[in-house]
């Protein structure tokens, strides 16, 4: 039986309490929410925190709020709530697409968006989703809050901008007009990590051209979570099959997958390209359907 190494456990009663604990215990402390990434890593001794600060009682961080032109998601919001939210599905179907294929129902009952992002696993789906949507994250410390674009949040595999004594408290997603988004994932079996996955978010200008384009990739390299080159190609262009195929090729060329038991690097590169163009196609169709229905205007 696998058991984590010894650690001390503290249950935070409020965000301030959690921050005080994190400050007191310094870099030996880790926040635990769902625990479905951290505990398996602790069992394997890939993570060995001295202190766990349990934030599951901080219901003040469990919310979905549409606030003007952005959706604010509390860090403790569980996958299941994101999957079942009609507001999320309406404005950001990319989330719903992804949540359907993230792990499985018991894991989604525990896992949180904050935990997913802070784990910063290059194969993790919500990182790609938030990258495509150009989300911002709110990091709070005892000295106050700072807002960080998600593209600056990742510092490498399992490393984020969250410093010692800080925690992620909120994710903010801009709501755009005439917008559509989608997520495409290939997995070996139900609930598995992606072999490769791609998310796309588009917002169209009045004339139908692409005004905002976001593409996020999962499982094809730590530096490929944000597919910049493919995004640049799309901006200002008319949506078309050829354009989406070319954007897919760019995403495939730019990523750096490694061969493992889920596939060869070549296969994953192919998937990155193909899934990017499929996600773009669906995102564009959803944006167009929204414009037609009058919802996105």
């Amino acid at each position: 039986m696998q058991v984590p190494a010894s650690f001390d456990y503290r249950r935070a009663e409020s965000v301030d309490d959690a921050l005080a604990l994190l400050e007191r215990y310094g870099d030996g402390a880790r926040v635990i929410a769902g625990g479905h990434s951290l505990l398996p890593m602790m069992k394997l001794r890939l993570a060995r925190p001295e202190y766990l600060v349990d934030i599951n009682d901080l219901t003040e961080l469990d919310y979905l709020r549409l606030d003007g032109d952005r959706l604010r998601i509390g860090a403790l919001t569980r996958h299941r709530k994101l999957l079942e939210s009609e507001v999320v599905e309406h404005f950001f179907p990319i989330f719903t697409d992804a949540e359907r294929v993230i792990a499985d129902p018991p894991v989604r009952n525990r896992g949180t968006i904050g935990g997913s992002l802070c784990q910063a696993d290059p194969s993790e789906d919500l990182s790609a989703v938030c990258s495509a949507l150009a989300a911002e994250v709110v990091i709070r410390g005892r000295g106050g809050e700072r807002v960080v674009p998600v593209h600056e949040f990742y510092r490498g595999p399992y490393e984020t901008a969250v410093g010692v004594g800080e925690m992620l408290v909120e994710v903010r997603i801009p709501v755009r007009h005439r917008a559509g988004s989608a997520y495409e994932k290939v997995e070996r079996k139900a609930g598995d990590w992606a072999v490769a996955a791609a998310g796309a978010a588009l917002a169209l200008a009045q004339d139908g051209r692409i005004e905002v384009a976001g593409i996020g990739l999962a499982a094809v390299g730590a530096d490929a979570v944000h597919a910049r080159a493919a995004e640049e190609l799309l901006r200002g262009r008319e949506p078309s099959e050829e354009l989406f195929a070319e954007a897919g090729r760019r995403a495939g060329d730019d990523c750096e997958p490694v061969a493992d038991n889920r596939g060869t690097a070549e296969y994953k590169r192919h998937l990155a390209a193909e899934l990017t163009s499929r996600a773009l196609r669906r995102a564009a169709a959803r944006a167009a359907a929204g414009v037609e229905a009058g919802a996105g205007v």
Partner: peptide, 16 residues
């Protein structure tokens, strides 16, 4: 079932 919902008890601490 933890508070009525399925969870995998190998990945939940008794403390939690």
């Amino acid at each position: 079932l933890l508070d009525g919902e399925p969870v995998k008890s190998c990945t939940v601490l008794a403390a939690m």
